[in-house]
């Protein structure tokens, strides 16, 4: 039988050949994983979080393992947005996949400048990082209140010439309130969840394991929380939701689509299995074949209650 399954999705004008995107901060700028598989297989790549100027990041150790997950406190180490445009976009454009630039800043003006620069760059969408838990200023400081989100998003919206995705933090009382604030301020789509703020302690030394004391939890451990938030948010807003948090395979992808996500991001799983992204796509396809599903849209929000 001819394979007529359609994996393509369109998110606020961003067309993806399939709904699996590499999550920001787990995939660098794609170079490392290009040794393992053809990056053109991916729906998209959300690149390492960018800032106006290069950032050195946080002191080591930056990684702590937890049951079924990891804590990280990398702290947005990146070469800066200009180096990204000059050195990384030409590499990424060798592949047929969407480029999503993940942008962070310390101030509203930083976010405006980032969006202004990236709007003129050869990227397919901008993901506004309002949720990194590992930096002192900006990011989660804006992203953890509805008013903070409204302020940043409404300001950058005026300058943004690309689909604007706002990445939300789960470290709040009511994520739907933040989602609605982002939607009202002009976000084209939402991505969630960023990492959950956590901590690991070494009982032997009585010290924190992470150099930065606290860090962001990701991996299978956070999946139930992420699924719940994707489910709640996708019911609360009309704009598309990109779901992430502990996705490791095709079944996980299906679960997030059923919960209401229009696309997903896969990250931490790739540290353990460098083929996790490709296998997630193949697993989704196989599920669709087995369940007589011809289009991904049939699955989105298809949860039976």
């Amino acid at each position: 039988m001819e394979n007529k399954i359609d994996l393509a999705v369109n998110i606020a004008g961003l067309s993806l050949k399939n709904p699996v995107i590499a999550a920001s901060g787990t995939f660098g700028f794609g170079r490392e994983y290009s040794a393992f598989f053809d990056l053109s297989r991916l729906g998209g790549i959300a690149v390492k979080g960018l800032t106006l100027l290069p950032r050195k990041g946080n002191p080591p150790p930056r990684i702590a393992e937890t049951p079924a997950g990891i804590l990280n406190s990398v702290g947005l180490q990146n070469p800066g947005v200009h180096a990204f445009i000059d050195d990384e976009i030409p590499f990424l454009r060798r592949y047929d996949t969407a480029i999503i630039a993940n942008a962070s800043g310390n101030t509203v003006e930083d976010y405006e400048e980032m969006v202004r620069i990236l709007s003129e760059a050869d990227v397919d969408a901008i993901e506004l990082n309002l949720s990194c838990p590992n930096v002192k200023e900006g990011c989660m400081a804006f992203g953890s209140t509805a008013s903070g989100i409204a302020r940043v998003v409404s300001r950058v919206r005026k300058l943004c010439k690309k689909p604007l995705i706002v990445k939300l933090t789960p470290n709040v009382t009511d994520i739907c309130e933040l989602a609605c604030a982002a939607e009202a301020a002009g976000a084209d789509a939402l991505s969630l969840i960023n990492t959950l703020l956590g901590m690991a302690i070494d009982a032997k030394t009585r010290r924190p394991i992470l150099g930065n004391v606290m860090g962001g939890l990701s991996g299978p451990a956070v999946k139930p929380v992420a699924l719940r938030m994707v489910y709640q948010v996708s019911k609360a807003v009309k704009i598309p939701v990109i779901g992430m948090g502990g996705i490791s395979n095709g079944t996980d992808v299906v679960e997030f689509l059923l919960a209401g996500a229009s696309a997903v991001m896969v990250g931490t799983a790739g540290f353990v299995n460098p083929y996790a992204w490709v296998q997630a796509i193949e697993g989704l396809e196989q599920y669709m074949v087995e369940n007589n599903c011809w289009s991904v849209s049939e699955l989105i929000g298809g949860l039976i209650l």
Binding site: G28, E32, G57
Partner: peptide, 11 residues
């Protein structure tokens, strides 16, 4: 984390 330079964990 990843062992190949993508996650920037082992600084």
């Amino acid at each position: 984390g990843c062992g190949i330079g993508a996650c920037l964990g082992c600084a």
